[in-house]
Amino acid sequence: MTDQREVVVTRWPGRAASAEGELAGLLAAYHLRTQAEKGETVADADGLPDRYRAEVLDPLAAFVDGVVLVALSGDTAVGCLVVTAPVGRRCEVKRLWTDPAFRGRGIASALVSAGLAHARESGVRTVQLSVWKWRTGAIALYERLGFTVVESWDERDQLACMERAV
């Protein structure tokens, strides 16, 4: 049975500072799932490419210029999203992940909405993201939240680029 407590989104560190290990676990799950979907399965975070392993080992250092939002159920981190520092009037959202046991409860939507609000408060005009084309559920979520597919700024095959005004 999954926990049905209210889930709140907070900026990390801060109220969620004690959840660093849980945030690392969420990031590890995100990256391990992505590697598996790309056909490059690794056993654990130690097998991740260096740049992704660095995020898992030290999220605070990896995202020092951005903002990490964490969804909490009680004191348990159940989802995360990173908003990069603005460049010009643009920023990017990335690393959206919800613990599978907590999916279907609007957590991803709440995280993205909080990320958009943060971007707006930071003076950003456009929020970008990239998502693997096979993640059709994520693409549908982003479209429901007003993102549209745009010409790719990334050369990786199977990656869809999206953006929306804030």
Rank of each mutant, 00 (worst) to 15 (best):
93 V>G: 08
102 F>L: 12
68 V>N: 02
68 V>A: 10
95 R>D: 02
70 V>L: 05
47 G>Q: 12
49 P>I: 01
65 D>Q: 14
94 K>N: 12
57 L>E: 13
51 R>W: 10
44 D>N: 14
98 T>R: 02
96 L>R: 01
45 A>S: 13
62 A>M: 09
86 P>Y: 09
82 V>A: 13
64 V>A: 15
83 V>F: 02
99 D>W: 11
92 E>R: 11
44 D>R: 00
75 D>P: 00
44 D>A: 11
64 V>F: 13
43 A>T: 08
72 L>I: 01
58 D>C: 07
72 L>T: 05
44 D>I: 05
62 A>F: 05
96 L>C: 09
64 V>K: 15
64 V>P: 08
92 E>N: 13
101 A>K: 04
92 E>A: 14
68 V>T: 11
101 A>Y: 00
99 D>F: 07
56 V>M: 04
47 G>V: 07
76 T>H: 12
56 V>P: 04
60 L>V: 05
77 A>W: 03
55 E>V: 01
94 K>P: 02
81 L>A: 00
80 C>D: 05
79 G>P: 06
69 L>T: 03
94 K>W: 08
86 P>C: 12
87 V>L: 14
76 T>I: 09
104 G>K: 09
70 V>T: 02
79 G>W: 05
97 W>L: 05
88 G>K: 08
62 A>V: 05
81 L>P: 03
104 G>E: 14
72 L>M: 11
98 T>P: 10
84 T>S: 14
43 A>C: 06
82 V>W: 08
43 A>E: 14
42 V>C: 11
65 D>F: 11
88 G>V: 06
93 V>S: 05
74 G>E: 12
90 R>V: 13
94 K>Q: 15
58 D>R: 11
52 Y>N: 10
75 D>V: 10
57 L>F: 05
103 R>C: 14
78 V>P: 06
102 F>D: 15
42 V>S: 07
85 A>S: 11
56 V>C: 03
100 P>S: 09
100 P>M: 08
81 L>K: 03
73 S>G: 13
74 G>W: 00
